[in-house]
Amino acid sequence: MTLRLQAMELVVKRLNKEGFFTLNQLRNFVCIVVEVMPPEAINRAIALRLLQQ
Rank of each mutant, 00 (worst) to 15 (best):
I46Q: 10
N24R: 06
P38T: 03
V34D: 04
P38I: 04
N16M: 05
N28I: 03
L48Q: 15
R27H: 03
F21L: 14
E35Y: 11
L10N: 12
V34N: 05
F20Y: 04
L15K: 06
V11C: 08
L5M: 11
R4D: 14
A7Y: 06
F20M: 01
F29G: 14
V36D: 12
R4I: 09
L5R: 13
Q53G: 15
K17S: 05
F21V: 01
L10R: 12
P39E: 08
E35I: 12
R4Y: 12
N28M: 09
L26P: 06
V30L: 02
N24W: 02
M8D: 04
N24C: 09
A41G: 07
P38G: 09
L23E: 14
E35M: 15
I42M: 07
L5W: 08
V36Q: 10
L50H: 05
L10V: 05
L51E: 00
F29M: 11
T22C: 03
R44T: 09
V12E: 10
L48D: 13
F20A: 01
G19A: 00
A45E: 14
L23T: 04
V36F: 08
M8Y: 02
R44Y: 07
V30R: 00
R49H: 05
R27I: 03
E35P: 01
T2M: 11
A45Y: 05
F21Y: 06
E9G: 12
A7C: 09
A41M: 08
K13F: 06
V34E: 04
E9S: 14
K17L: 02
V36E: 13
F21H: 01
K13R: 10
E35G: 15
V34C: 10
A7W: 04
R49S: 12
G19V: 00
M37L: 15
L51S: 07
V12P: 03
K13I: 06
N24T: 02
E40R: 15
Q52A: 15
G19N: 00
V12G: 04
M8C: 08
I42W: 02
C31G: 03
V34Y: 01
P39F: 13
N24A: 12
N43C: 10
I46K: 11
L51P: 02
A45T: 10
C31K: 06
R27K: 10
R27T: 04
T22I: 02
